[in-house]
Design a protein around this nucleic acid. Sequence first.
RNA 1: GGUCCAGUAACUCAGCGGUAGAGUAUCUGCCUUUUAAGCAGAGAGUCGUUGGUUCGAGUCCAACCUGGAUCACCA
Length: 498
Amino acid sequence: MPDNSNQFIRLRKEKLEKIKSLGVDPYPIDSNRTHYISALLEDKDNWIAQAEEITIVGRLVAMRRQGKIGFGNIEDISGKIQIYVAQNLIGEENYDLFKLCDAGDFIQATGILFYTQTGEYSLKCNAIKLLSKNIRPLPAVKEKIVDGKKVRYDEFSDIELRYRKRYLDLLLNPEHRKVFETRAKIITAIRSFMDSRGYVEVETPILQPLYGGANARPFVTHHNTLDMDLYLRIATELYLKRLIVGGFERVYELGKDFRNEGMDRTHNPEFTMIEFYEAYSDLRGMMDIAEDLIKHLAMDVIGKDTFLYHNHQVCLSGNWKRVSMPDLVSEFVGQDVMNMDFATLQAFCKHKGLEIPAGSEKGKLIALIFEEFVEKTLIQPTFVCDFPKEVSPLAKAIPDNPFLADRFELYIAGGEFANAFSELNDPLEQRMRLEEQAKLRDLGIDDANVVDEDFLEALEYGMPPMGGQGIGIDRLVMLLTENDSIKEVILFPQMKTT
RNA sequence: GGUCCAGUAACUCAGCGGUAGAGUAUCUGCCUUUUAAGCAGAGAGUCGUUGGUUCGAGUCCAACCUGGAUCACCA
């Protein structure tokens, strides 16, 4: 993208020099504020009656000069208000300075509140101070109220520019800043929800000598002094379990994971996940927490229970369905998959055009059919239980049906929102399961788990029975803020360099 | 990675074989109650990049770059 803004910058640099020649520091250290703008917008008549001298600070977002007077709009974090600047009120010198100000500058304005002739509530300035000079013009966005609705002209709407220059998006599209304020509230609410249930927030390594806890390809980096490769974590699971071995009973970690996969509207290479583990709980406990937490976020942070997400109307209230994966798959296949042998099921998959990865057994085929055909049909919140053990190497088997693992994934609007198990704590069984994964790796399945000897040794010291769960935060924020692209809820999404 | 769509002034867009346009923004002038301020004037573009077709290419063709949608992979 060619940068043709040089002419604009040159002109503003000339203004900068003029300001300096007036003896004014365009980037002073000190500023002063007596009130946030939002405070002035409440009880307007009272502010006018009091005639108190007010000082506000903020960015000058619009300028309308006419001769020896001028109007501008100042915006701070809390709101926006008009200022009225007249030469006979602030003096010729100050007015000369005002004439050198542009939309985009930060200024400090002092005065009293009044109504203009056209009834606009404004600050009548008796002093202004330049706080920071802008030398690159902001895109010209204008607004007008038509029938009580805000109409925006020349909106800053180019999607690529919005992501690459997010600061402009936040500045020029307040509704996008709101999304990130809501994201922050959601994350705060998640933390206090977990804290109030006796969970301890912990931090485990992002740089790991081995990666594990999920099926994914990692990013690799290198430590110079140790001269060794390290992986960026793909999950926190194996470290959090070590903490349960170490005597913690309830832990959670909320932070970034990194997976070296493709990017699309629900995937960013780095993304935010909460994982939590609770000793002496199990899958049922994990379902209750997931349902309580997400309903709480919807009602208490957002204030509603129905959301439009990926063109689906999703209702989070009521009791969430709990269904069995083999039942769902059997329904799709037209016969009971639990009673089908591998060859028959394989023939069905091939008939449906599914590619079957090396080393697959029956459980993998059932999971494949589920992912390919059933997942997308689960619109209202649904806990899908009874995953094949074969695809759940870290989950405990169901005692009376060891083909299956005590695991669920939560689906909403056809997408996965949570993944939980009764965690496998039998060290010998866990070793076997990871060795099975290692065999898959030998067959070229490069997202299979690796054998982590240190983790297995920790299990040998004893780990209590427990439930564990992971919830993708970005997708949850997408749902709750009704955004269909993950890039809309990540401040600086991954982009190619240009 | 496949397919489809898009990229023209700082912003939003028009132009689709024959001299690069509009509104806003910017600059100059006028203006002491404006608010998408107004009036008058001016400057501003390697038309994503590189090739090709043509007397002539933002315009047609090809490749590439960047983004979006969708599919594949995954959470």
